[in-house]
Structure formats: C-alpha cells, structure tokens
Design a protein around this nucleic acid. Structure first.
Lengths: 226, 226
DNA sequence: TTATATATTGATACTTTCCTGATATGATCT
DNA sequence: AGATCATATCAGGAAAGTATCAATATATAA
C-alpha cells in the first residue's frame, strides 16, 4: 500500500520538484499552495504524512499545526529555509515530527519521510515492552537491557529514556523534553537536560564521547536513533 | 457475564460512537459527560473498566484518578489526543492502566479493553506453592522455607512476601504494595513498608545489610529478584 | 486476666538522586 | 582564523528518599 503524502508549499517550482521526487520514490502525492488549502485537503482525505513549508503566505507553521492536529496525528515534516530557524523550533514545539532544511538532498528527504512513516506503524498501543535497536525497556517491570544485560537507571533517567524510545527517530526539542519530563514551567532549564543526557549516555552509549544513540541536534534538541 | 464499562467523555458524538462500538462488541456500557458525573456513577455501581477521555472540562485525568482510586481498583484506559502527551504521562503515573491515542481503530480499542479485563480475572488458577529461587511458599499451609529450612513469618510479613513472590522480577511501587497489603487508603504510609521490608530482610536475606532478594528501587519501590 | 506476639509510631543516621555552578570542549558564523 | 554561542563534563552540596533501632500501642492466646 503506497503512502500518501501531502505537500504544502507556495512556491510552484518547489512544489513540482517535491512532487516529482516523491513520485519517483514510490509515494502518492498531492499538493496545496496555501495553509488553508492544505487544511481543506487534509480534512477531506487521509494522508500518511505531510510536508509543510514554513513561510506560507497565509498561515504560520504553528497555526497550521494547531488547527490540523485537532483531529489528526499524521506526522508532519517541516521544510524550512535557513532563516526560518525560530519558526522551525516553534513548529517542532507545537508538535511537528521532524524537519529538513533547504537546500536538502532528496536522499535525505526520503530517508526522513520513511523514518517518520515507520514510527507510526506499530504503536499507539502501550507496548509494555519497548524495543529500539539493542535496547529493551519493560515498562511494567521497570527493567532496561542493552544486549540482554540489564542496566540501572534512576527515575528521571528512566523517564527520559522512555520518552526517547517512544519517540525514536524524531527530533525532540529541549523545551518539549523538559515539559514532558520535568513538567510545565521547566521549559528553559536546558541545563537539567544536559546533565541527564550526559548521565544517560554514560549508561547506554558504547562510547559516551561519541554518542550513536542519543544524538544532539544543535540548536534544536536531541534525537534517539535505532 | 458481560463486563460493564463506563465511558467518560465530554464530546457527545465520541460518547455515542464509543457506546455503540462497545455494545456491538458485547459490552454493557454507561456514559458520563464530566469527571464529576463519572465519579458519581462509578461510586454508585461497580464497573469492570473505565474509558477516560483526557481534557474533560471540569477535571484533569490525574485529579479523576486520584479521587477515583481512593476506593476502586477498576482498570482505567486513557483516551488521549496526540497533544495531550504531558497529561497522558501524568495520568499513567497516577495509576491509569493503559491508553489509546485518538484516532484509534475500534479493533485496537477492543483488544486493549479485553487485555485489561483479563488481567483482573479470577485468581483461582494461582498455584498454592510458590517457588522463587531457594525460597518456597506454601500458601495454604502458610509455610515458607529457604533452602528447605522453614522460617517463621508474622501475618503481614507473610502477605508481603507472598505479593513479592507472585510478582518477582517486577518493580513494585510503594503505593501499590501499600494498597495491596494494607488496603486502600494506606498508599502514603511508606514508613510501614520500610519497617516491614527491614524485618523481612532480617529473615530471608543472607546479609540483611546487603540485600540480594528484596532490592530497593529508590524513588519507586522494591523488587523481588529470583 | 496476664503474657506474648504483632503492629504502629517516633527518632535518628544514612544513602541516593537531583540540582547547581565552574570549567572545558565543540559548533557555527563572519 | 577568532569571536560567540551551544553543548559536555565534573564535582560539591541540597533535597529527597531509605534503613534501622527502640518505644508504645494493639491484638491474640493461654
């Protein structure tokens, strides 16, 4: 079953380029030139993923996400120009799943799309057993293993790793992580995060100085990869 | 005997949808539009399971669970929208048993409900002889042996060890242990637990100052390992 | 009833986890 | 390249959580 992707971009040439690239990669695509049009198309019919350009003439990315996410949980990948840095972070905080920065290679775009499509498949259930790569987390037993060797985590470390595993492959912003683990009001305590990320890396990375599992997205946050 | 399910959701159309779906799947249902109403209906009559929508107008999911769990241990499944991430985690921490994220397939919802109902079924199948490692407990004779040497336990100690043995390998939270052994309303008397854990350790650990069987999970509770 | 076992409190020492600040390293932009 | 900002790391201390002993209260049995 071919995934359906909605492309929202006001620039006709980019729209065409994206549509062709994705069609060539085996996706079905549809396009919209404005946020309003995108919302309409998105509500008429189900898409498996949305590519959203920031800097639409009629609507900010955050506005779009707020309206759209009212009733859908389709992954949204932000396509941003380099100077949209701020908007990009706002959009990620508002629930966007990932981003690519213009100019991007088509390979990278397709890889991101596939990663985000995959993430949606198995879940929406609470597997009492989370598995990402060699790491296993049994939530009800509170046991974490790496290559079948169990490791000891403090409560905060456990919470952090759990959130990472439930959202692996996705770029998570500082403020979202802080809000999720420490609670509302801690969005700006990025230092907490740094310390705990460091502690987690000591425990789950083969070489903590060269992290392969929790990778940092400078200026954005972190991403857990499998 | 058909299971009775209480649906708490403020959106009338979702309420109707859920009620019909579940009725069709063979459950008896009742609905409530507010947290307050849900608490009332839940205390008037016994339900086998509760479907709780986050984002009720009058009460947070955590508030509901705190109040409800004072006197009931009916399983609660959270129904959450994707942007309720924070509330969802808070609700799970507050004792919810599971969650489904909107939009969900009805098949999945029913599967989750059945899984959670099953968990609660009769304990008639529990064997009367528990064996974990070198420790043996004959429940009907009330005899506990370590390496075939019988030891003497007080009633509370026996109950505690029994619960540990029935759930060995799993981290058990303070509040769950207190609720299970002392009863509802004792969730916060962690001191009781400490005293009895200490006493049990004196009796079953080779070196009570360096416990190998009942290990403490700081900030969480205890785990019995085999 | 008294004697005995068990359960609940209380007081205090101890351990772990978390937070915080200082400093080092690394990334990004002209 | 140097300047600036972001991230990593370490270690000391605050806060939270835990162990343990002992005293009192309550229940149970002879």
């Amino acid at each position: 079953m071919t995934p359906h992707i909605l492309i929202i971009d006001d620039d006709p040439s980019i729209r065409r380029l994206l549509a062709m690239t994705l069609a060539f990669a085996g996706f079905m695509t549809e396009t919209a030139a404005t946020g309003k049009d995108g919302l309409k198309k998105g509500s008429d019919k189900h898409f498996d993923l949305i590519l959203l350009d920031l800097g639409l003439p009629d609507m900010s990315g955050v506005k779009f996400l707020e309206r759209y996410r009212k009733d859908e949980e389709t992954p949204v990948i932000i396509v941003s120009a380099i100077h949209d840095e701020l908007d990009k972070i706002a959009a990620l905080n508002a629930g966007a799943d990932d981003y690519v920065t213009k100019p991007f290679s088509t390979d990278e775009l397709i890889a991101r799309i596939q990663a985000n499509l995959r993430r949606l498949l198995p879940t929406s259930t609470i597997p009492s057993l989370l598995v990402v790569g060699a790491i296993t987390m049994d939530i009800s037993c509170r046991v974490v293993t790496i290559d079948n060797i169990s490791i000891k985590l403090t409560p905060k470390e456990f919470k952090l790793l759990r959130v990472f595993m439930e959202n692996h492959g996705k770029a998570l912003t500082h403020s979202w992580l802080l809000k999720t683990i420490w609670g509302i009001g801690y969005q700006h305590e990025t230092h907490y995060l740094r310390v705990f990320i460091n502690q987690l890396r000591q425990k789950i990375e083969a070489d903590p100085t060269r992290p392969k599992r929790i990778v940092t997205e400078t200026g954005i946050g972190y991403r857990f990869v499998g």
